[in-house]
Design a protein around this nucleic acid. Structure first.
Length: 698
RNA sequence: AGCGGGAUGGGAUAGCCAGGAGAUUCCGCCGGGCUCAUAACCCGGAGAUCGGUAGUUCAAAUCUACCUCCCGCUACCA
């Protein structure tokens, strides 16, 4: 890699994070793939030799678990998703030079080779750790095959992560009270030898690397916490069948059926996929080894990883360490995209609150429209909100009104009056404006800004509209035909330049525009220089590039989305009701539909208290006056618990008190707080064990 | 809790890394123009003390410190 400006004379590799072969794609996923595709195309437009690669991530426990549920082999399961992805991406104009998967021979071989190199270079060591094991089934239980209690917070947790409690990652062997997720059998721990990658040895290297790394700010900054802190070594093997075997270099023995952890072979697919591309087109066209192997300073390609911002650490810590340890190049840049929200809220696949890739296509919209939205609605690392209303707005105003309208009016006029490009020289003003647009585009690519690259073309088209409007060629045709020819010559040139600069974002429609100005071949085969080359002297009648989206479509689409979400919610409630009915006849209030945030929960200051005194309040049927010790102080609290009758037995009872409730006066008695109780019978909440008065309830 | 990202006219967004004239663009609002163009387009206007406080500077949206609020990450969610 180098730090020269793009284009450089080295081969570039643009990669997209591997989609995990485990479910449908929605437009949130597409954000990353469209971004990568736009970036790769933009590099090529600058004249940079570029390979654009990705592949499906086939391994790992979620695939194995879901395949088992579906009753098929993990390979069959993952391959089905792989094929779906491979078919879906091109439908959005996301055209990888190679799209492989992590289970193909190329990746299996390259992964084995790289791990063997790491081993030979002394970066791998063995360590005995305790792993969960199901004695009844005689089966090891890696990662999500086991659940139990988090050793840090005590919450129920999955084997690899405390997903509902503290959110911590759990290394194999950490979880307490382990239990098999397959059989529900209690699991036991057995000692087993696993392989560890000495990430800690790369601390100094990574500290320098992160300073050199280009790309989005989040990718450059987020990993600093780890790199500048203490790096833990990384367990890179799992005891399961599905995955790439650990390359022992010896005869496969029965006792070792360890496979590599999925995050080891996944990023290697970037290189393996490039290798497949190289093998297909020939090393003279693209040499994967030149791109991936040269030493960091002297040679090697420009590797740019385009990922979602949830997997930054893998691409800025583990992966560069692996590359370094195996004598490969280091990535030049990591572009980490923000997420997509839907009408301001996060996607929720379980509640079907998402816009699915297939769904978008089924609605009959051109992929370029969504590409434009996703690529230019905000900075790449920013979260972007999607709404059909906003989608319509941007399509109608920017694509139809600005780009499409300019191209159409300019070319139609030129065609009618001049049968094509008028015979005149390009004016200096317009030449300079186009040069500015090219500079803007080039700067955008070097700044890793997908948005700015797309905007360069749209603002150029906007300039075109101003230019044609101010010069009024429709009046000049009679008054001053020469001047009219000049103006139209300029406009056709602008249209041609727009086609070239818009090609990365809108590959389909830009190519149509290219043909409309009489361009030969495909706009995707030309570079920025073409923007200033003279357009064809003759071209036919243009047609419109984009169509407006009527307001009714938006209403329709929103209604569909709402109906779908409602249906998903009903299903969920239905399931819940069915469970409840089996256990109880009493009518329970439904759970509040509106969820509150953790912050709001924290606003409630609940304490453990001990009742010191309890007496009925005269004249009140249900009220009792309590004095409660809540550790920090004693509180007088009025509570509606007279149904319990046995007020005398209450002193000494532990209760839960909402301590920061505003005070109130009931029957002339001041009440400072609320004692929590359940149901009509005022069943008091108490603590099970040793919490002292004053302890906060969380 | 630590870390990362963010807060910019009514809404949405750019600019911040490399401080410097009227703070960008889209929507919406008000007024005008044009008729080549998809009721498209162009011009003008109103509307922002750039989250808060303090500082650095001749000059701060931009740099520094502290604070508030939103989103996320913390080792398998794009």
């Amino acid at each position: 890699m180098s730090h020269e400006e793009f284009p450089t004379d080295r081969p570039a590799v643009v990669t997209c994070g591997l989609p995990y072969a485990n479910g449908d794609l929605h437009i949130g996923h597409l954000r990353t793939y469209v971004g990568g595709d736009v970036y790769a195309r933009a590099l090529r437009t600058l004249g940079q030799e570029t390979a654009f690669v990705s592949g499906s991530d086939m391994h790992g426990t979620p695939v194995a678990v879901n395949a088992e549920e579906a009753g098929v082999s993990p390979e069959t399961f993952a391959l089905e998703w792989h094929e779906t992805y491979a078919e879906t991406f091109p439908k959005f104009g996301v055209e990888f030079d190679n799209y492989g998967h992590t289970h193909d021979t190329t990746n299996v071989e390259l992964t084995s080779e790289i791990v063997r190199t790491l081993d030979e270079n002394g970066h791998v060591y063995e360590k005995e750790i305790m792993v969960a094991y199901d004695p009844a089934e005689e089966q090891s239980l890696p990662d999500r095959y086991v659940e139990g209690t988090c050793p840090y917070c005590g919450e129920r947790a999955r084997g690899d992560e405390c997903d509902e409690g503290c959110g911590r990652h759990l290394e194999p062997g950490e979880i307490e009270d382990p239990q098999s997720t397959i059989t529900g059998n209690p699991a036991e721990y057995r000692e087993q030898t696993h392989k560890f990658f000495r990430v800690s040895a790369f601390q100094d290297y990574l500290a320098e690397f992160i300073d050199r790394l280009e790309g989005t700010a989040n990718a450059k900054n987020q990993p600093r916490e780890w790199i500048e802190g203490e790096l833990r070594d990384w367990c890179i093997t799992r005891d399961m069948d599905w995955g790439i075997d650990y390359p022992d270099g010896e005869e496969p023995s029965d006792e070792s059926d360890l496979v590599l952890y999925v995050w080891v072979d996944a990023p290697i697919e970037y290189a393996a996929s490039t290798k497949q591309y190289s093998e297909r087109v020939g090393a003279d066209v693209f040499d994967w080894e030149e791109a991936w192997k040269g030493s960091a300073d002297e040679s090697g390609g420009e590797v740019v990883h385009v990922i979602g911002r949830d997997i930054i650490q893998h691409h800025t810590v583990f992966w560069p360490a692996m590359l370094r340890g195996a004598d490969y190049v280091e990535p030049r840049a990591v572009m980490a995209s923000g997420f997509i929200t839907l009408n301001g809220q996060g996607f929720s696949t379980s509640r079907n609150r998402a816009v699915w890739a297939d769904e978008y296509l089924d609605e009959g919209f051109h992929p370029d429209l969504l590409r434009y939205y996703l690529a230019t609605n905000g900075g790449f690392q920013q979260d972007v909100d999607f709404s059909w209303e906003r989608f319509r707005e941007r399509v109608n105003n920017e694509l139809v009104g600005t780009v499409g309208n300019f191209a159409y009016r300019a070319l139609l006029f030129a065609h009618r009056e001049f049968d094509g490009t008028p015979d005149a020289d390009l004016s200096t003003e317009v030449r300079e404006r186009i040069e500015d647009a090219i500079d803007e585009f080039t700067a955008a690519v070097n700044d890793y800004s997908v948005r700015a690259a797309g905007d360069a073309a749209v603002s150029l088209a906007s300039f075109g509209n101003e230019y044609i409007q101010q010069n009024e060629p429709w009046n000049l045709v009679d008054e001053d035909p020469e001047r009219a020819a000049q103006v139209l010559r300029d406009c056709v040139q602008v249209a041609k330049a727009v086609s070239v600069l818009f090609a990365p974002v809108a590959p389909g429609t830009a190519d149509r525009l290219w043909s409309q100005v009489g361009g030969e071949g495909s706009v995707h085969d030309v570079t920025v220089d073409a923007a200033l080359e003279p357009p064809a002297p003759d071209f036919g009648e243009p047609d419109e590039l984009y169509e407006k989206i009527p307001a009714e479509r938006v209403e329709e689409l929103n209604a569909k989305l709402e109906a779908r979400v409602a249906e998903a919610e009903r299903d969920e409630e239905g399931d819940a009701d069915a469970d409840d009915d089996a256990e109880t006849d009493t009518t329970l209030e439904p759970v509040e539909a509106d969820r509150i945030g953790f912050e709001e929960f924290q606003d409630l200051d609940m304490r453990v208290g001990e009742i010191l005194e309890a007496e009925g309040i005269e004249g009140a049927d249900d009220l009792a006056r309590l004095v409660v010790d809540i550790g920090v102080e004693e509180r007088q609290i009025v509570a509606g618990i007279k149904q319990l009758h046995d007020l005398d037995s209450l002193p000494g009872t532990r209760v839960v008190v909402l301590a920061n409730l505003e005070s109130a006066e009931l029957f002339g008695v001041e009440s400072n707080g609320m004692v929590l109780a359940a149901g009509e019978e005022a069943d008091l909440l108490t603590t099970l064990a040793d919490a002292d008065p004053g302890e906060r309830v969380r």
